[in-house]
Design a protein around this nucleic acid. Structure first.
Lengths: 209, 209, 209, 209
DNA sequence: AATGAATGAGAATTCATTCAT
DNA sequence: TATGAATGAATTCTCATTCAT
């Protein structure tokens, strides 16, 4: 699916507003004003507000799959190293697409119907399969323990990242990082989160009890 | 703050609907109908829809602090045991108040203003302080490592639990637990989550690298 | 179905406007303004604009059936006299409910769906049955010819009356009746129409060819 | 007035849609899509949606006058035969232009302004004059009675034909003509209608009371 | 204390039309 | 001549809230 410049422009503004105020809390008036676009253009371009959300999901959902697929086959990496790559990749994505992550985090809680629900489900499934293959690979090679509850591990990966992003202002305040620039703070948080999640995965996947 | 029976009745219906459809996606008409209460009663009792949410937050936020406070001082428990108690306590609360947890999970992402934001902030802070005291206690006694990023650990606790609860239908499907009764499934999930989080906390708090 | 005073007030204004400008040509804004009622009241009372039309149809459709049913059984009247009564009754109704008749005349042409279509169909069917019983009765008694195309006769009854009502200004102009008062003109037109239709029915039902 | 192929194409699609859904119920988007024509073309070709309707009226109104004019002067036909020819001619037109007839039937009920109203008025007047001349001719020759209410007769001609065409599905159902092909049914209906109206005209114009 | 009726503001969407090309 | 993009006005409907009782 290809989107025109105008459509992308609208989607990106919508993304910010949906993240800030929620889907239902954002009116297409808000979006139109912020995007400096005529009110009617949103229906004109996307058909409806719902369809705009769907478009956003499909637009943002596109770009994650490719790189990882090849990495998995890379023989030069240990299973644990692959896990680390995956974690960093996921964090990278969440950090880069913070707004979208917040929307996802919010909307996955709701009983969505239609295409949105389907897209969320597909993303979740794709992630699940990727991690499963990695972990099963590591188990076969004896690098990882048996009996790993993969969905729980995913919940930790996704839940921790989303929760941190959602409450980052709090994280900043607690750590007295107000003096840092935004960029510095983001970089720091990303690093810390990466270390934290890697430690968790390593513990769950390899530690004896 | 005390609430009358009618008020509680309304709040509990509202809680379910807010969890299902989001705050903005729920109209007070919906609530009034489901609660079999006159439409005007909600404004009458709570002042406004926003105030109803605030009331719900304060109502649900009440009951968590008391038990834990005393437990912390209990000399008969090791620091790790105390952590385990806290984790179970938190899971218990999330599982028992799933609707409210989902609302919290959703609403904390938004830039709330007013009392709601304040209440969320207060809860977060209280949790944070509790864990901090526990961990610092353990560190002083040499049971826990230094250099623990407590906010990150909290993000994992809260994020994992919320994410799992929010996507439990997915967890159920993946694990082929459709045959289990609801109760069985909930019990199983709770147990698994508890083990999972305890393992993580133990690893983060005690493992050498 | 009972309607409150406000509802009747709204329906009667709506009827006039629908007759003048058509259903789609009339906005609920128009109706609200003319009825001196808040815009939202229409949705509030009727649910939607479509439902308002349905309500109007059911409201106006009520009052025609009763009187005629008994008349049919009256042994003191000849079949032809009964037909005359029916014609006068129908004309009376059309003249009294001119606006509604115009709406009916318009809307029956459209491919309506839902309750409106059903109500139109029911009215048509009821009329059809009534006339059929009358005519078959007359045929049995030998007063009427065999081989009468009843639907065609109905088309003439309804079509002529509606067409005349719809184009009455034209009828007035042609006949130079501008000097007459409205009332006089209506009375005259009613009389003429009655004679005309009775003559037609008599010819169709009794004349030899 | 001459219309280009594109214009005719648009008008003919518009005619169908106006007949089905009414003028106000049809958007120029509908028309453009069905006619496989660019949306802007309609305003471009006709100026506006209203003007499109006017164009349609003038386009369809063209073709009726010519043939009849000469027939009237034909000395070889009796007055009654001329009436029969006129009835058949009118029915032929209505049947051939069913969509347009339905539009006319609908729109004549509305308080139209502008050219449309004028065109409807002109058509009506022309028909009226034609019939008047025929009937007055017959009266002079002693073939027809005096005291014929010509506008009423016209209302019957037009009203019956339009009503039948508008409710033909009903006529088909009542008569169990579903098995007939469309063509057969139309032919049958046309024949019946012709007989019916001729009988009526004969009765009104010649019968003694 | 409780409620049915009412209201004004704002929601999403559709419309006919116009503009730049 | 033809068109895709754009627009402002108007549409119906829903919303949270308030008022009179």
């Amino acid at each position: 699916m290809e989107y025109s410049d105008k459509q992308v422009q609208i989607m990106e503004i919508a993304e910010i507003l949906f993240a800030e105020k929620g889907f239902n809390g954002t009116s297409i008036r808000d979006i139109a004003e912020k995007a400096q676009v005529n009110l009617a253009m949103i229906s004109y371009y996307f058909g409806s507000k719902d369809k705009l959300l769907e478009a956003l999901f499909s637009y943002r959902g596109e770009h994650l799959k490719l790189k990882l697929e090849s990495m998995i086959e890379d023989k030069g990496l240990s299973s644990m190293e692959k896990i680390d790559v995956l974690i960093d990749h996921y964090i990278e994505k969440v950090m880069k697409q913070q707004c979208f992550s917040r929307i996802m985090a919010r909307e996955q809680v709701l009983n969505h119907t239609g295409i949105t629900a389907e897209l969320i489900y597909q993303m979740k499934k794709r992630n699940q399969e990727l991690i499963s293959r990695l972990i099963h690979g590591g188990q076969k090679k004896g690098e990882f323990k048996k009996n790993v509850d993969i969905p729980l591990l995913m919940a930790t990966l996704i839940g921790t990242a989303n929760n941190l992003v959602a409450t980052q202002h709090y994280y900043r305040e607690i750590n007295n990082f107000q003096s840092k620039t935004d960029e510095e703070f983001q970089k720091h948080m990303k690093k810390k989160l990466s270390q934290h999640l890697k430690k968790i995965f390593k513990a769950i996947l390899t530690n004896e009890e």
